[in-house]
């Protein structure tokens, strides 16, 4: 009893000492950005030390984009959020009022320093002959994608499929709905996050095709050894914009506005853009984009604004309770 009390006091003292060591930022992010921000955070700490002569530690939290937004709404003190889609940050603005509703206008390029798109990952030799979206609805093709209710990446997947069906000659709402319904009939495992789906497909060998972020597909290829998988780029896909934002209430309370703002602006520098490109995110900087042009296949892209009239409308129509996704998924 006496020993454990002493130990407890020692542990408490240790804990207190470590928590208030130097200035820290918390970046609450989504699933596939772990490797990206590990490198960006180290580079920014060096940059900040050199320019502002201050030490900064950036902590990271990763998870499904929707559930990460939920945590911030519930009080997880994120200085910056870097999530999978604008709607999740809109939710933080709407429900918890931690940042203004027009947050997306505060940084260049819709507050999106890097972009990505949606591609397919198939097993070596492409045994099911998957070339484009139409091949995903064929009978006997087992598709892996996360759940659009909880995963940001999954919502991009869903909207990419929908947009493709709309853009096909003679495409309309009904045809798109039937196409997406047929696609989800072929989904064998519906994980809650993008990283879970990748592990299901690549580590546990489930399914014939994974619908994934381009960066996630490249990373899986790299991590599991080149040659085990092939990346298939469809004829049309969606321009996925994962945005970043400063959480005003938190940075003002913690006194970190200056360094948090600098962190977000740093993401647009050529240095950070290079890191993004090396992690298979499409850079915004024309210079870096030209340098890495070989890496990224050319693909016809449409945006959420063009095809769905923005995220708020897309979310309401497709992913809200009783929306199109619920209807087609329940009907199965």
């Amino acid at each position: 009893m006496k020993i454990s009390l002493k130990l407890f006091a020692a542990a408490a003292a240790l804990y207190a000492a470590s928590t208030f060591a130097d200035s820290t930022l918390l970046n609450v992010s989504y699933d596939p950005t772990r490797e990206l921000y590990q490198q960006v955070n180290a580079a920014f700490a060096k940059h900040w030390q050199a320019t502002a002569k201050e030490k900064v530690t950036i902590r990271a939290s990763h998870g499904g984009s929707g559930s990460q937004a939920r945590s911030v709404i519930d009080g997880l003190e994120a200085d910056v959020v870097t999530l999978a889609l604008a709607y999740d940050i809109d939710e933080i603005a709407a429900r918890a009022k931690l940042l203004p509703a027009d947050w997306q206008k505060r940084l260049p390029n819709n507050s999106t320093p890097y972009t990505s798109t949606i591609v397919f990952l198939v097993r070596k030799g492409n045994p099911k002959g998957i070339r484009d979206w139409d091949d995903l609805v064929k009978p006997g093709v087992s598709v892996i994608t996360p759940n659009p209710k909880t995963s940001g990446g999954a919502r991009w997947n869903y909207l990419a499929a929908w947009g493709y069906a709309m853009k096909k000659p003679g495409g309309d709402e009904t045809k798109a709905r039937n196409f997406v319904a047929a696609l989800f009939r072929n989904v064998s495992i519906l994980d809650s996050g993008a990283r879970g789906s990748t592990t299901t497909f690549a580590q546990r060998n489930q399914g014939d095709v994974l619908i994934a972020w381009e960066n996630e597909a490249f990373l899986a290829n790299k991590e599991f050894g080149a040659g085990r998988f092939e990346i298939i780029v469809p004829s049309v896909s969606i321009a996925a914009e994962p945005p970043v934002a400063l959480v005003d209430t938190v940075v003002d309370k913690r006194g970190t506005r200056k360094v948090a703002q600098a962190y977000l602006e740093y993401l647009y520098t050529d240095e950070a853009q290079e890191i993004a490109a090396r992690n298979f995110y499409r850079p915004r900087s024309a210079k870096v984009a030209a340098k890495y042009a070989q890496q990224f296949p050319k693909v016809a892209l449409f945006t959420v604004d063009e095809a769905f009239g923005g995220w708020t409308r897309a979310q309401k129509a497709h992913f809200a309770d009783g929306g199109v996704f619920d209807q087609i998924y329940k009907a199965q």
């Binding site: 709404i73 519930d74 009080g75």
Partner: peptide, 18 residues
């Protein structure tokens, strides 16, 4: 933060969850 005691705790700078 959206819970019963959350706003009061936040106002007093007390962190419980997370």
């Amino acid at each position: 933060l959206q819970g019963w005691l959350g706003p009061w705790l936040a106002a007093h700078g007390i962190k419980i969850i997370f």
